[in-house]
Simulated scan of single mutants.
Amino acid sequence: MGNGRGRRDGGRKHPGGSGAALCEVYDTALLDLDGVVYAGGEAVPHAVEALGVARAGGMHLAYVTNNALRTPGEVAAHLTELGVPAAAGDVVTSAQAVARLIADEVPAGSRVLVIGGEGLRVALRERGLVPVESADDGPAAVVQGYGGPGMPWGRFAEAAYAVGRGVPWYASNTDLTIPGARGIGPGNGAAVEVVRIATGGRAEPKVAGKPLPPMHRETVLRTGAQRPLVVGDRLDTDIEGAFNGGVDSLLVLTGVTDAAQLLAAPPEHRPTYVAADLRGLLAGQPEVVEVADGGFRCGGWRAFVRGSELALDGVPGQAGEVMDAVRALCGAAWTEADGPGAGVPDPRKALALLGV
């Protein structure tokens, strides 16, 4: 079972196991939204049912998102419409985290130039700051957050004017992409790069969102979690954020990260647990065991390195769950990648066998 403290000793060598369901082991699930609970406005398959069972069993569900576009109330209303009952207090956004960061560093009542959606404006007002629209309004700071696909190009120009004049620059997050119903689109990180390029690449924003400490701080303050489990679909935000915060994590393969990316994960991107979707909260996690004849075993699968490739012993449909094979492959891949002078073994044949 995960130790509840994460790892800061170079990262884990294979996914962890748990004899009890994860929703029984951890008191609070810190759930990412895009790619985990919903995508493009629609619920991810099995998410509504799984979260309902976890909640009924006593697990507190908190929704932690780097998307700063909507207010917590709007996010909660959307979740409730999807069949996941939530209140505004159950939602923590990067807009709230960056607003606290700004409020700690500028005088009370300062004006802040907003390049983003209503979620940023509401969060700034909550901290006693005044949102403004123009670089000529005398802002003490400029903040960028995801503004949706309809963000006018002129908003980026306002940010560039202010940053170019030396106004302190903040970003809710720097995720380069965001999942949607039609595929993967550009996220707030792409918009930040627009402003960076326009200002000559010299300025650097202070960032609040996952995987950085301000977001973890905001989440802990707002949820009061004692035994949290971070649940996400992104290695470079959700899982690295859990690693930085010293807490356990569950990666679900319903969003940005696929199995090949998981196998290539560096130490700080390796989750405690792995599941196909949110039904992973409702079950234990099988142990991944290093075996004497080489490689790692999970369920009926054995994964090992053959030359420069990952290989599997096991027959689909007979050796057990496909995710058990993925967990065993993680052990073989991560251990090999951490060896002296070793790289990540090629996973393509093994994953083709599994159809993932």
Rank of each mutant, 00 (worst) to 15 (best):
R165G: 06
L229Y: 02
V207C: 01
A95Q: 09
A68C: 10
V207S: 03
P347K: 03
A159L: 07
T199I: 10
L229M: 07
A191V: 08
L251K: 08
S18M: 02
A198F: 09
R7S: 06
P15K: 03
L101C: 01
Y38R: 03
V122F: 01
G35M: 06
A208M: 05
G317N: 13
D277W: 06
V44I: 13
A29I: 01
P149Y: 03
P228N: 12
R302Y: 00
Q96C: 01
G314A: 10
W169P: 02
R55S: 10
P186G: 04
V130K: 12
G40M: 02
G187S: 11
P211Y: 07
A325E: 10
N173Y: 02
E204F: 08
G341A: 14
V25R: 10
G245S: 11
R297V: 04
N173C: 09
A283K: 14
R125K: 11
I178A: 08
A276G: 04
F304N: 03
L282H: 08
V167K: 11
K210A: 04
T257F: 03
A198R: 07
G57S: 03
G307R: 11
P15A: 04
F304R: 15
I239F: 05
A97N: 08
G164F: 05
G320P: 02
A260R: 10
A140F: 02
D338K: 10
G295L: 12
I115L: 15
E118Y: 05
A43D: 07
L22C: 06
R70D: 13
L354D: 06
N3F: 01
T254Y: 07
G19D: 15
E133D: 15
S134T: 03
V291E: 14
R202L: 07
E74P: 07
G119T: 05
G314D: 13
A159D: 13
P345R: 05
D324W: 10
V132W: 05
A141L: 10
D313P: 05
L124K: 09
I184H: 01
L124R: 11
T257R: 04
E240S: 05
R302N: 06
D338W: 05
H269D: 00
S94I: 14
S134I: 00
G16Y: 02
G35D: 04
L101Q: 15
G166E: 14
L129P: 03
N244I: 00
D175G: 01
D136Y: 05
V220C: 04
K210Y: 03
V142H: 05
D104E: 15
V231N: 09
V64I: 03
E287C: 00
E118P: 01
P228A: 08
M215W: 06
G183H: 11
